[in-house]
């Protein structure tokens, strides 16, 4: 991406992410045969949350939530400005680390369990994303997202295994069934986000939008120079993830780690081996 378009996207990221999140909620509701909330619902929530009386457990906890949002934005900026893909993933880890530290810093079992499960979710998806970064490197000779967007043949075709692997771990990243143990509303009531309220919860809420945009922007990379193909792929993955979210129960952490790592890591590795041979 890069250039003016990239920076414009970065600036408007929360807006686009919000719409994306709204679309997801709407789509999910339609799949459950409900009317669902209006498309702009995330923004209504956004403005309502600003309006709430601010309340924190301790000030560090509140700050960490805001830092999580800023970190997520930074990670997204690195991605959209065409930066180094490995650094993108590390920045994302940085953003998440704030949330994890925040989760551990309060005296709430659910929050701490959430932090722990978030760590395990990272264990589940992070290697696959690093794998994808190396896959792009094999094709473009560079780790930069910029270079991927100049690939004339879409990486999708060569990196089929990695694409499937990423689709498998996508629910873990977006906290969707079947790998949404980190959030697990019925067990730990949102996990890491449980102690946040009002303005500070809003930081997490919007960080969630950015996370959506981040994940799907990563998928767009697989289209290479043909960004329309990339967008189409992202749309398909979006549908697929929502569909799977609507058709599965939540698995526990052992199952999640076993499935994601046991299935997608070998798949990605084999794919990479094939690319390497060529």
């Amino acid at each position: 991406m890069g250039g003016v378009v990239g920076w414009l996207l970065i600036l408007l990221a929360p807006l686009i992410g919000g719409v994306l999140y709204g679309m997801e909620r709407k789509l999910k509701a339609r799949m459950q045969r409900r009317a669902g909330p209006p498309l702009m619902q995330p923004f209504y929530d956004f403005f309502k949350l600003i309006d709430k009386r601010p309340m924190v457990v301790h000030s560090l906890h509140g700050y960490l939530g805001i830092l999580h949002f800023l970190g997520m934005w930074l990670a997204l900026a690195v991605l959209l400005s065409g930066g180094d893909l490995l650094m993108v993933i590390f920045m994302h880890l940085l953003a998440n680390s704030f949330l994890i530290v925040a989760a551990f810093s309060v005296r709430s079992v659910y929050s701490q369990l959430g932090g722990m499960r978030q760590l395990l979710a990272i264990l589940a998806y992070e290697p696959i994303f690093l794998l994808a970064g190396v896959g792009f490197y094999f094709l473009s000779g560079s780790f930069e997202a910029k270079a991927v967007f100049e690939l004339s043949s879409a990486p999708l075709w060569a990196m089929w295994g990695i694409v499937i692997a990423i689709i498998i771990v996508m629910p873990a990243k977006l906290k969707k069934s079947p790998f949404d143990m980190a959030e697990a509303h019925q067990e730990i009531i949102g996990g890491a986000e449980i102690e946040y309220s009002g303005l500070f919860y809003e930081a997490l809420y919007t960080a969630r939008w950015l996370e959506y945009l981040f994940a799907y922007a990563f998928i767009v990379l697989f289209g290479g120079a043909n960004w329309l193909l990339g967008l189409a792929l992202a749309a398909v993955v979006f549908l697929l993830v929502t569909l799977v979210d609507n058709a599965t129960t939540r698995l526990n952490w052992q199952q999640t780690v076993a499935i994601t790592l046991g299935l997608s890591l070998p798949l990605g590795a084999i794919n990479l081996l094939l690319i390497g041979i060529q």
């Binding site: 909620r25 509701a29 409900r34 009317a35 669902g36 909330p37 009531i189 449980i194 946040y196 309220s197």
Partner: peptide
């Protein structure tokens, strides 16, 4: 549930006092 579907009005059941109105 779908019959009454309050989420169309933006209502979510949070189960958490800190985020509830």
């Amino acid at each position: 549930a779908p019959r009454y579907d309050v989420e169309r009005l933006g209502i979510l059941n949070r189960g958490n006092p800190k985020q509830a109105d």
